[in-house]
Design a protein around this nucleic acid. Structure first.
Lengths: 113, 113
DNA sequence: TTCAAATATAATAATATTATAATATATGCA
DNA sequence: TGCATATATTATAATATTATTATATTTGAA
């Protein structure tokens, strides 16, 4: 299982508009850099930097085809994570019921008098 | 559904050791600030800041019990997200099969000669 | 063998995030 | 009323993230 630190690193890496767009695209299939460039409105070096970061964290990899680099997903958590993020949650969680307990006492009976 | 921007904000908010610990604790139930303080080794004002940030983003809320503030989860995506992050994924995704296609041509037949 | 295309790297300036330190507020109790 | 407890707010210094700019590398083709 991922350590706390690893889980946080993963979230940080995904939490960027360019990188999440790249990942959403790669979920659909392999894409070379210039294909990605067509829908990311950032500079070519910047795309490279984001791809490099994603690769450093073991989230994607590539194979070389002539002058093209074709990137693809390798981390299996990504499709699941992206799916949940898009899921439509209608309701808030239920608030705490009448008498929640903490280490410091019971509410409201014990603590309030 | 959450917009891209909202999804990124959400990820950023969770991607912090103190905040993810707070959320993992609140998934189990209500906790007041001093209860949270017992397992977070950061200063009291810092805890307050993180709680305030989580509340600003509509992830948690609180009720007041005397001098205590009792925080609880309200965003229903959080338990699902935390669960996935802890899930044990054994295998990498399968690499691309023999002839992936991009807008710029077919591999390897068409492009490599 | 030179050239252009495709992509990467490195340095840096701009910006955002974070923890710290100091202070403030609110509540219950003596 | 006055004090201690529980928590929040504000300003700021330290640090991390990001985009930009300039340059480098690799490959296929003329």
């Amino acid at each position: 299982m991922r350590s706390l630190g690893q889980r946080i690193e993963l979230l940080k890496v995904i939490a960027h508009p360019a990188r999440i767009k790249i990942l959403e695209e790669l979920v659909k299939g392999v894409k070379c850099v210039s294909d990605l460039g067509e829908f990311l409105d950032i500079s070519q070096p910047n795309i490279s930097q984001h791809l490099s970061l994603l690769r450093t964290f073991g989230i994607i990899d590539y194979y070389q085809d002539g002058r093209l680099r074709c990137y693809y997903l390798i981390d299996p958590i990504i499709p699941d994570l992206l799916e949940i993020l898009k899921k439509d949650y209608r309701e808030s969680l239920p608030g705490p019921s009448c008498c929640p307990v903490t280490k410091r006492g019971t509410y409201p009976g014990e603590r309030r008098r």
